[in-house]
């Protein structure tokens, strides 16, 4: 066990866990931030996607000991009122079905748009290919990403 001081969604948080604990479980079990989802645990599905310093990262494969001072953003901290342009575009296109994968999708999409404000179809595919949606909402996700890109 060791103590870690994490910067999560703009707040300082202290947790006492073993160093190998993936950030996913620190968020879900210890900080009650359950918006970040568990899907596979092996960086294959993207359900656990969060931002480290604004970059999309699979939190199921990131040991808490590797995070250090870096800023963590989860779906709960993406915007104050759920009004990030990507979140708004998601609502506009009524993307979710079951909704389980969508936090991860949104975190991947926001990271993509922050680095590439006007991605092509192929760039969207590349950035989003790590996020599985079992309900098959891909065509809507793509449309929503384009809407969000144009709204900026």
């Amino acid at each position: 066990m060791a103590t870690y001081n994490l910067k999560v969604n703009g707040k300082d948080q202290q947790v006492d866990v073993s160093p190998s604990t993936p950030l996913l479980w620190v968020l879900r079990d210890h900080l009650q931030l359950v918006g970040t989802k568990f899907g596979c645990g092996i960086a294959q599905c993207g359900a656990c996607t969060i931002h480290i310093e604004g970059i999309a990262v699979r939190s199921c494969q990131l040991p808490v000991s590797a995070v250090g001072e870096q800023k963590i953003t989860t779906i709960e901290g993406l915007s104050e009122n759920g009004d990030h342009p990507v979140q708004k575009a998601w609502i506009e296109h009524d993307v979710p079905q079951c909704g389980y994968c969508q936090a991860g999708q949104i975190m991947s999409a926001t990271s993509l748009l922050s680095q590439n404000p006007n991605p092509s179809d192929i760039e969207i595919d590349q950035a989003m290919n790590g996020n599985i949606c079992r309900c098959g909402t891909y065509t809507r996700i793509k449309k929503a990403i384009k809407t969000a890109a144009n709204s900026k």
């Binding site: 918006g35 989802k37 993406l78 915007s79 998601w90 609502i91 009524d94 909704g99 936090a103």
Partner: peptide, 14 residues
């Protein structure tokens, strides 16, 4: 449920 989903509100069994 759209807003709750896109803001990551708890709603699933897990």
């Amino acid at each position: 449920a759209g807003t709750a989903i896109v803001t990551g509100k708890p709603m699933f069994g897990i």
